[in-house]
Amino acid sequence: MGHFRGVSSGSRVMQRRYIAFMLWFVGRAIVAASKADKDVKQEFEAFPDGFTFSLGSLPSGPRMVIQKKAPGKVRYLGQGKGEAIDLNLTIKHLQAFFMILSFQESTATANARARLFVDGGVPEACAVVRVMDIVQVYLLPKVIAKLAVKRYPVWSWRRHILGRSVVYLRTVTGI
C-alpha cells in the first residue's frame, strides 16, 4: 500500500523582503518622477483626482499603493491603509514577482505568460506600466533596464544624466 505525508507551504522570506524593498524604492521613485519627468507628469494628468492604483502579489504578498491626490500631487501610500483601489495589478505568485523585479522577465513578458492580472481599466493599466517603464529606465543602468522594459527609449543625454540625478535625489530624500 502507499504512504501519505502532509506538506506545509512554508514561506519565501528573502524573496519577500527583496520584493518589499524594491516596491518601496520604486514607489518613492514614481512619486519623484511624477515631479521631475514630463512624460510621467502627462500620464498622471490623464488620471482623475483621487485615482489610486496598487501593484502587489498573491496571496498576501507585499504591495505598493500610489494615489494621485490632486493635479501634480502624487503620494506613495506604502502597503495601503484600506483605501479604495481603482486599479489593482496583481501578480499571481511571489516567484513571478521576484522574476520581474530581478529582471529575469520584463513586465510585458510576464503579462504574455499570464503571470499577472488586472482588476480595473486596461487603458489605465497600460498607463501605469508606461510610468513604471520610465521609472525603471531612470533607476537602472542600460544593460539591466533593457531586460526590464519592452523597448529601451531613445532619450537625450541631458535627460539621462540630469533627469536620473533628480529622480534619485528626490527618491532618497523624499522631497
Partner: peptide, 28 residues
C-alpha cells in the same frame, strides 16, 4: 513543493504503489 512555497496552501502527498487496485483508491 517549491512551486507551492509561499502560496499559503498546505497539501498532502499520497505515494502509491506501481500496481494499484481499488484498495489503493480506497486508502487514498
Amino acid at each position: 513543493e517549491d512551486a507551492f512555497r509561499g502560496s499559503g496552501l498546505t497539501f498532502g502527498v499520497y505515494a502509491m504503489e506501481a500496481t494499484p487496485t481499488m484498495e489503493t483508491v480506497r486508502e487514498a
